[in-house]
Nucleic acid binder design. Structure first.
Length: 375
DNA sequence: GATTCGTGGTG
DNA sequence: TCACCAAGAAT
């Protein structure tokens, strides 16, 4: 096995962090952890993983829960399609697979919410299959060390990276075979830290990710102390900060949300609506919403067709309005304002009337969560 | 291939 | 305030 892999495994053995999902090869728990960690910082994801593993210890537990319950546990983590797909796939596993996870890359890949990365992660960690993972950490590490200078947004460049990874993975398999022929077990030689059961492809994948996540970091990597500083292309040619090369991202599109916090006179509760359709926060609850193309004052808001449709000739008392709340998403800049209103008679057109004691049962997005915190 | 899906940390 | 970006996937 070559010098690169020897260094990598030696480094991983000494430096691997101890996470709960590194103490298991249960496909359900690995799947759960991989979905949660997608596009998520490990520190933010770990508490959610612990919560899910506790509330839904098996795929059956997850399957029998309602989508609202799953979304509630997911609340605050973002990219809520992950939670919806998680729940949907749990049901597929129980109903179509008799509760047993498929054990090949292709069959894993076919499940809802499982893409190239997650299929490879489960296949390697749980079943020892030689599929390399290619996440943001691996892309950064590989492009720098092996000098892949093309834009990583392009499929051809990703393919180039995957070729490198497959080459490394092959060497591991070959080394494993030679070691076995010599009467040695792979884990005796590589011996990853004790809480890591699979010492071959899964360990390689996790070591690559770990090195990218903790050492070959996006900004200010400590290259002078790096174990690969004698072989790193980017360091040699002063391109560490340039790689991986990415295309410029699109500017944030503005959206303006006017939330109607509607109470009924003499009662304690508010109206909520569930977001449907193909838009942000699908499946989450919020107050009745009037979206406008720019910021509006109360005067203009009351002249919108939506307001008229809501209240028409019926009585509504405007108790107050909040200051503007700014909320950034990956592709949007939302400016929100809350209008506290009081009506005489409840009506279904405002949504579902929820008692104050039940607010915490609803899955809501961060804007609503923050508002309710000091309501 | 380009967009659309959250949220929070960091410089 | 802002750009970048994090164990990506679906459309």
């Amino acid at each position: 096995m070559n010098d690169f892999l020897n260094k990598l495994f030696k480094w991983y053995k000494a430096n691997a962090r101890d996470f709960p999902f590194r103490r298991t090869t249960d496909p359900y728990l690995i799947w759960l952890s991989e979905i949660i960690m997608q596009q998520t910082r490990i520190e933010q994801g770990v508490p959610y993983y612990n919560k899910f593993a506790d509330v839904f210890p098996t795929v059956q537990d997850l399957a029998v829960a309602t989508e609202d319950e799953v979304l509630k546990q997911w609340q605050g983590l973002g990219y809520y399609s992950r939670a919806r797909n998680l729940h949907s796939t749990a049901n597929d596993i129980v109903e179509k697979y008799n509760g047993i996870f498929p054990e090949t890359y292709d069959r894993l890949r076919a499940l809802k919410g499982i893409g190239d990365y997650t299929a490879a992660a489960i296949a390697s960690v749980c079943f020892g299959l030689p599929h390399p993972v290619m996440d943001g950490n691996v892309i950064r590490f590989i492009t720098r060390h092996f000098g892949i200078t093309g834009p990583v947004d392009e499929a051809a460049v990703k393919k180039e990276i995957m070729e490198v990874l497959n080459g490394l993975m092959e060497q591991i398999q070959d080394a494993g075979c030679r070691l076995q022929d010599a009467g040695c077990r792979m884990q005796d030689i590589l011996h990853p830290v004790s809480h890591i059961p699979h010492p071959t492809s899964g360990t390689f994948n996790q070591a690559m990710i770990e090195f990218g996540a903790t050492y070959c970091v996006p900004r200010n990597p400590q290259c002078n102390n790096c174990i690969f500083n004698d072989s790193c292309y980017a360091l040699k040619f002063g391109m560490v900060e340039k790689l991986p090369l990415k295309k410029q991202q699109q500017p944030l599109k503005p959206r303006y949300f006017n939330y109607l916090v509607i109470s009924v006179r003499g009662k304690k509760g508010l109206f909520f609506r569930k977001r449907t359709g193909n838009d942000i926060w699908k499946g989450l609850y919020e107050f009745p919403l009037i979206e406008t193309s720019k910021t509006v004052n109360l005067q203009r808001l009351m002249n919108t067709p939506e307001w008229r449709q809501f209240f028409g000739a019926s009585k509504v008392k405007v108790l107050g309005q909040s200051t503007q709340v700014s909320h950034l998403l990956s592709h949007l800049k939302i400016t929100a304002r809350f209008y506290t209103l009081e009506i005489e008679k409840p009506s279904e057109k405002f949504g579902t009337y929820i008692l104050r004691s039940k607010f915490n049962d609803l899955p809501v997005h961060r804007i609503i969560e923050k508002y309710l915190e000091d309501y």
